[in-house]
Nucleic acid binder design. Structure first.
Lengths: 223, 223
DNA sequence: AACTCTTGGTTGACACCGTCTACCGAGAGG
DNA sequence: CCTCTCGGTAGACGGTGTCAACCAAGAGTT
């Protein structure tokens, strides 16, 4: 009696951990509920008592990744002024991508389960985006673009937010894809590229850049 | 005798076309050689006479997408001056992503077969990127970044190329993902965003922007 | 002409996978 | 005590990639 077999819901959590292990070592495409059960020494149907389908366990893992990402972004240093905040946001974004490549790839680099079927995943995803959007939106556009497209007059901030997000997201995606290693750039260049991109963003927004190379954001949030 | 069954290599080409159809209607994850053979009315092993594995047919499709992308980029208008060329390159890039979302997603939005196993795919990928790199590299950096990271002194062009590529790629990725529709931005803003990003890139590179909203690049190259 | 070898197709099997259905033991509630 | 749910088991079905064996037609050689 001193040795309970397992707390209720214990297998559920164990499944998720084991699934994470599989994704980490073998890639998300190799994740199978059968392999999970095999590793846990339970029958091939046991996980189905906790997850309706393979996509549901994956969706929960992705949802947790978004939640972790959001916590990470919220833990970034606050500087008080919008420009500095933007820089911190960018650094935190890159820093997360580098510190948690598995989670980052799951969120942005692999096809997600159909969002319509997994509202909790969707909710976490939207929450993370809203943080980004807020951080960027504080920035007043000090250098407005002259020839605005008709119909977009009131949306300079949104357009700049999209521009900045696109740059950061594109850079993080490129850095994680194998593409870059095969191009034969020196490692210093690859590593300096996010810093350089943040500086260019600063220039684009009319700010004399003051960013330093990213000191790692404290990694509090467990993925 | 007037009716030859098929030219040699005919089935090979038919497989690729059928595979493209499957990817288009059902998504790349639903591509299976058995479904291909079923649709073509041949035995489930027939495709294996032309492709060593499922990944090999996918790799060939991706390689063709890169080749088509490269032809598209090369067909862009040439303006003579580096700044204008950069703008045309950016417009061509977006234009391809919008005109051939299937190919674009295959190249940048889904996990590729292991590049090491598919050198031809890699070759085409590198070729496309080298075009981008050239188009960007012609641009002399009129506004060099002051505090360069040590070890990257001679690589200002590469760093700017990565910055510009990241922005364009990130924007194209975002525009293709469902994410954007759920954020509730007006359609005009979404459509203007690539144009705006190109303008911001121009500012970042120290150029007073002269770009106009993208006229579609002629779509000569069959995907 | 006969003989062989390659090419491009066939069928059959195997081991995976997700998922449906049925069963079943333990515990909770009436 | 009886029933009902919960969390586990076992078995089956159809899907997948892929290996192995076979086989017909044609090309080349002797």
């Amino acid at each position: 009696m001193s040795e309970r077999k397992a707390k209720p819901e214990d297998l559920r959590e164990a499944c998720i951990q084991e699934a994470l292990g599989i994704i980490e070592t073998a890639g998300v495409e190799k994740l199978s509920l059968r392999e999970v059960s095999r590793r846990l020494g339970v029958s091939h149907q046991a996980p189905y008592k906790h997850f309706p389908s393979r996509d549901h366990i994956l969706a929960e893992i992705v949802a947790r990744a978004f939640a972790s990402f959001a916590r990470y972004l919220e833990a970034r240093p606050r500087t008080g002024d919008p420009d500095g905040d933007l820089g911190e946001m960018g650094k935190a974004y890159f820093s997360y991508a580098m510190a948690h490549p598995l989670q980052y790839r799951l969120m942005f680099g692999t096809p997600l389960p159909d969002p319509a079927e997994h509202p909790e995943m969707m909710r976490q995803s939207r929450h993370a985006f809203s943080l980004l959007r807020e951080g960027i939106g504080d920035l007043e556009s000090v250098l407005p673009i002259p020839d605005a497209v008709p119909g977009t007059e009131g949306y300079a901030d949104e357009l700049d937010a999209l521009f900045i997000w696109a740059t950061i997201h594109g850079m993080a995606s490129i850095l994680q894809s194998h593409t870059l290693q095969t191009l034969g750039l020196p490692n210093e260049v690859v590593e300096a590229s996010p810093f350089h991109a943040l500086q260019r963003i600063g220039v684009a927004m009319g700010k004399a850049s003051t960013a330093e190379p990213a000191p790692p954001v404290p990694d509090d949030a467990a993925p």
